[in-house]
Nucleic acid binder design. Sequence first.
DNA 1: TATTGTTATACTCTATAACTATA
DNA 2: TATAGTTATAGAGTATAACAATA
Lengths: 148, 148
Amino acid sequence: MSTELSEPTAVTATACGVREIRSLVTELTHRMDAHRRSRIAELDLTPTQAKALEELGEPKTARELAAVLCCEPPNVTYVIDKMQKQGLVERRPHPQDRRAKQLVLTDAGRELRLDLLRRMATNSPLDHMSHDERAALRDQLLRALDRA
Amino acid sequence: MSTELSEPTAVTATACGVREIRSLVTELTHRMDAHRRSRIAELDLTPTQAKALEELGEPKTARELAAVLCCEPPNVTYVIDKMQKQGLVERRPHPQDRRAKQLVLTDAGRELRLDLLRRMATNSPLDHMSHDERAALRDQLLRALDRA
DNA sequence: TATTGTTATACTCTATAACTATA
DNA sequence: TATAGTTATAGAGTATAACAATA
């Protein structure tokens, strides 16, 4: 206790719940991430490939994909190169702009995407919650995000 | 709608809230992370250095620090090397085990650590919530984590 | 023989700059 | 001249393997 006296715990008495909530949110995120990583690993995908697969439900240009992946265009080239070698995606000429390319999932890519989405919906760390409990959690999260 | 018919949304009607909750939790985490990164950047620290600084409230061996940082021992050497050059931490002989080293914060390190903890408690993305709202959020999070 | 911390090394991911082909 | 995608390259961060000192 003596060493903890100088900790800013006392300073922030009014904000005392913030740390606890932070750690709870962090733990929930870790669990959800672990779940996602497991489902992704079952399909031999990296997290970025999985995100790209999900986002390519409709065709996108490399720049559009870069925007949703929050990365730079060269990284899209990097990721799509590998997915193309795996036969998951094709680069087609863009119908309106000959500089651009349309990234389109192959049949195998579409199939894998649906498989991923289906797996993501199974064994969720929230499966034990009832509908009402989830609604209550959602409402509190919306309040935290100031969107209640 | 025709293309979405094959999406697993319909398959998981009972789990429909899971995706929404995931995205809300993810967004809240992003906001908290952004807040943390800002506070850390104010002190010219990297996220890993900041975490190490927080964890070194009491002295630890390199392996102990590796455990809490969820990384391998060589990375602790990597991180502590830089913090030692900055005069934040010392490597002392371990009193019980001459193979090990005790990582101990210097006065400057302790001061910076308290500064970091204080800053972390300011301008939190949860500051707009009342005490009761935070308590309700905490309870729902505990329920989600099955610790209610 | 096992363990601690370090060194040497390689790999992954991400970013910037320069290039090409279009616009 | 500006933009789309690619290539070349460099950097941060993390991992594994081998080593010296100690248990």
